[in-house]
Each structure stands twice: as structure tokens, then as C-alpha cells.
Simulated scan of single mutants.
Amino acid sequence: MRWTSALAIYVLFWAFSVFLVLPFGVRTTDEAGGERVPGQAESAPHDFPAGRIALRVTVVATILFGLYYLNYVYGWVTPEMLDWTREG
């Protein structure tokens, strides 16, 4: 695999991991004991620690990409194993 392909796949894993990580650890303003701004949705997060979330996303994406790359190298799961339409 070329390094540019690996980088593109890692970026895809990173983008997917954002949606995987974002819902965890979110506290609303009511849960944090703060005052809501007029017009603020009840479900809006109290604060948004972008650096901490980026770090978590990077860790998750790196683990997932590592598993993907190891599967690419060692062939643990191949397309033939996932072809359930084939007989035999």
C-alpha cells in the first residue's frame, strides 16, 4: 500500500471516529449547574473541549487504522470470507 493511500484511509478513519467519540462525556448546561443563554437548546453541551476531543478521536482512529493495516498485511479477513452469495 502506498503511503498516500494509507494517509487517505487514516483520514477517513479519523472523520468516522469524530462521530463515534462526540456523544461520550457530553454534559448539558443543566447537568453542569450553569445558566442557559436565552434561546439555547436544552440538549446543547455546556462546553466544547476541542483539544481533548481531537486527542480522543486521534487515539480511536489510530487504533482502528492499526487494526485495518494489520488485517491488510496478514489477511485475517478477506473479501472471499465475506462473500455469502457463493456456494461451497
Rank of each mutant, 00 (worst) to 15 (best):
E31Q: 15
R56G: 02
G25Q: 13
T29N: 04
G34R: 15
P49D: 07
R52T: 11
Y68V: 03
D30T: 15
V59C: 08
E35W: 04
H46T: 01
T29P: 00
T4V: 10
S17R: 04
D30I: 13
F65D: 00
A8Q: 09
F24S: 12
T4N: 11
T58W: 02
G33T: 05
F24P: 01
W76K: 07
H46E: 06
G39D: 00
W3Y: 09
I53Q: 02
W3G: 02
I9M: 11
P49K: 10
A50N: 00
V11F: 13
V60A: 13
D30P: 02
Y72I: 03
P49Q: 06
T62D: 01
G39P: 00
F13D: 01
R36Q: 14
F24Q: 08
M1K: 05
S5T: 14
V60T: 11
R27C: 03
V77C: 07
M81N: 08
G51V: 10
F24V: 14
Y72D: 11
Y69G: 00
L7P: 00
F19K: 11
F13N: 04
F65G: 00
D30S: 15
V21A: 12
L64V: 06
F19H: 11
P23T: 12
R36V: 07
F24N: 07
G66S: 09
V57D: 01
T4G: 06
V37N: 02
I53S: 01
Y72T: 13
T58V: 02
T85D: 08
A44F: 03
P38N: 09
T58S: 14
V57M: 03
Y68R: 09
I9Q: 10
D83P: 01
H46G: 00
R56I: 02
V59F: 10
G75Y: 07
R86T: 13
Y72M: 11
V59W: 06
L64G: 04
N71Q: 10
F24L: 14
H46L: 02
A41D: 10
T28I: 13
E80W: 08
L70T: 09
A6G: 04
G33H: 04
V57Q: 04
L20R: 04
T78M: 07
P38K: 12
R52K: 12
G34Q: 12
H46W: 13
S43G: 02
S5N: 11
L7Y: 05
H46V: 02
R36N: 07
